[in-house]
Design a protein around this nucleic acid. Sequence first.
RNA 1: GGUCCGUUCGUCUAGGGGUUAGGACACCACCCUUUCACGGUGGAGACACGGGUUCGAUUCCCGUACGGACUACCA
Length: 507
Amino acid sequence: MSASVRVRFAPSPTGPLHMGGVRTALYNYLFAKKHNGTFILRIEDTDQTRLVGKAESYIKESLEWCGLNVDESPWKEGEYGPYRQSDRKHLYRQYAEQLIKEDKAYYAFDTAEELDAMREKAKKAKMPNWQYNSVTRNSMKNSLTLSEDEVKAKLDNNEPYTIRLKVPRNEEVRFHDEIRGWVVVNSSNIDDKVIFKGDGMPTYHLANIVDDHLMKITHVIRGEEWLPSAPLHVLLYRFLGWEDTMPTFAHLPLILKPDGNGKLSKRDGDRLGFPVFPLQWENEETGEVSMGYREQGYFPEAFINTLAFLGWNPGTNQEIFTLSELVEAFSLERVGKAGAKFDAKKTEWYNQQYLRTKDNKTLAELIEPQLADNKIEIDRDRLYSIIELTKERATFPRDILKEAEFFFEAPSTYDEKTVSKKWKENTPELLNKVIDRFGDTDYSASELEVAFKAILEDESIGFGKLGPQLRVALTGKGMGPSLFQICELLGKEETEARIKRAIEEIG
RNA sequence: GGUCCGUUCGUCUAGGGGUUAGGACACCACCCUUUCACGGUGGAGACACGGGUUCGAUUCCCGUACGGACUACCA
């Protein structure tokens, strides 16, 4: 690669960034870093009607949470700014006009209503796909059909207009996609796309070509939904005279719904109970809240790892990758072509894997808010011990607290199944022996275990006659971590109190 | 409807003209454990279909089917 790699992630701030968008950002980031290149964030806000105020900061915060550091952005201007298309408005018109001068584009005066009517009419005539193109443009109101004077008069009169690309007829447009190979389309199948809107803003098509060119973008890595318009973009590069510096294209496979078919959407998350957004999002109009990976207790590493493997793989058996390992391993060659159904279960598995690598202190900090919510005050070292004991059975930080709740509060109910199956007439008597014997120890897990085994031997009974009973008395549950470590952490006083209480309650 | 893209276990995928088609998640069994989880071992489970090309196709080519994206003065 001769010129230094420059890639951009170019979301439109119309709502929260979808996880598919985050994956696109991730692949752009990985590709840039892999080649010591530059990762750029450009805000594509040419549609002023769909703007959502919070969306831009949401994008920023999402990328930050994921650890995808941006080299150039609206908040970190490089030498190719501005990085927000609305701030670049003044740049676009000249290119549209240049195309008109060169007979590669034209003014179109048809109103939206007229266009709708035309489409409606065509539909009734069994032409479901009416297009403004090389054949239909001759019967529309534009600078090709109107006289020069008429056009000038309309322009002088400030009549609204759009600028459309004059797409040639029957010309082969081809480009090489890094993921899909050669893609060939006949220009007769491309319509005369609006490149400049009535409101004075360019459409995405013009803006992205102009910006990519001006910003010296070398690779356009984006979702497959852009594949159909890629030939149009190639045409635009050609018409603008920039074809020899045109970026390389790579169209990523889509992320599909877990069940059924189709693109993963916001609704699927609500329906199937997993987040589709990196961060929680509240729709200000409806008040509707969509959950976020962050708020659900996912680690950004797990989220990123999952996303990386949706469409890409390293070709080895390694499944766990840190961001920098991903940078090292990433290549567009190993990106697949087919859409990938999202599997929430695998994301949970990744989260569990990452949770287990966290030290107790980190985990403690993560559950601090929950502790506060439940008004639990606890000594640091004791908390670390509890975390150590329970983190193996947790997928999310919040699971730790749930697994360990009996440490903070004595059980108020006792697992019915364990009681009915295991609690016998002589159980209270045996448990009293436990109190006695345990009292002779220093209450360390190892000594407690020795003492417990001694009781079993004296009474000639197996662990199953006393272990589960002690557990249910202490924790109210039929399962959980090591009994003796629980006793050690509970301490003599609490252990004895709970046993006595259970004997009283259960009988 | 049109254009474009795609198709290996349930899911993510590796592989590639001759393989016992490999791994991961999920699932099942067993082992470990007082129990749950973790861990370990093992199991079930896939090349969409039809034609070519070839000594030989899951792999290459062409069709078919199925799926998807796009089809706005949205991105």
